[in-house]
Nucleic acid binder design. Structure first.
Lengths: 144, 144
DNA sequence: TTATATGCAAAAGATTTGCAATATA
DNA sequence: TATATTGCAAATCTTTTGCATATAA
């Protein structure tokens, strides 16, 4: 999605277009295929616009998540990582352990799982599936 | 696994049997089918033995995790939850959103995923799959 | 003009760590 | 006795919040 489209969508819902919000979104667009930490997003945003505060970053990420414009996942060490939602249909991710690059996995094992879950007498509500590995580039460059 | 078996296994590796370690393990055994937070483990341990410190709990959980005796997962809010490893073969969990009870899911979609991951030119190293829902009891009792 | 957004500093909450004291083998 | 373990308090680190100020519509 384009920057202006996102901002327009937000405007329609009563949220304003500000310089800082634009900067944060620009960072997310520039790294559309990676999950970034709030800290990384702040650093990148500072390259665009020197004065921007961490609380502004968090507040915007929270809002974007609520609007389903951003995906949030937790890394093993409990740090939140964010990326722009590209596909609005249900999907999962494969994430590179070396560079953080992600790709979309269109398969979901929910059908196979449903039967097993029923056997256990659970009623399934959600599931979390994340794949980790090394991407083509990182394998080539042996950056791991 | 029994309490004494775990302690013996630890002894063989040079770790000592202490009262506090025994208390923490007892709590994990008493709640074998749920993931518990460090805070909950501390509270439960205090019921057995009034004087026990949070850092002791964390240090023991870390050790148990390193020894592959405990599973650790992060909840949505980033809090770590722990449970004794019951089955040492690869498996996943279904976790009750209401009472925290878990059950083991013996199916793993890794075969189906492998092909897709290769198509994306990733080399898969690990994966995370967790299912959430409501267990039989909680559905009956409508405690949700 | 008025609701939204931001900066700053402080607070919150989970987890970790240094160090001295203690307990186990 | 030597090494592992614990308690305590302080430190760390990420994330959140209150409040006054600034900005967009």
């Amino acid at each position: 999605m384009e920057l202006e489209n996102i901002l327009n969508e937000m405007n329609h819902k009563g949220y304003k277009t500000t310089e800082k919000r634009r900067n944060i979104l620009q960072v997310l667009i520039n790294h559309q295929s990676s999950f970034l930490s709030a800290d990384t997003i702040l650093c990148q945003a500072k390259k665009i616009n020197t004065h921007i505060n961490m609380s502004t970053v968090y507040r915007n990420l929270l809002l974007l998540e609520e609007l389903h414009l951003v995906h949030k996942i937790l890394s093993e060490d409990g740090i939140a990582n964010y990326k722009l939602v590209q596909v609005h249909t249900h999907h999962h991710h494969i994430i590179c352990r070396s560079c953080g690059k992600t790709d979309i996995i269109d398969y979901c094992p929910i059908k196979e799982l449903n039967t097993l879950v029923e056997e256990k007498h659970f009623k399934l509500t959600e599931h979390k599936l994340e794949l980790y590995g090394y991407c083509e580039n990182c394998i080539k460059n042996k950056n791991n």
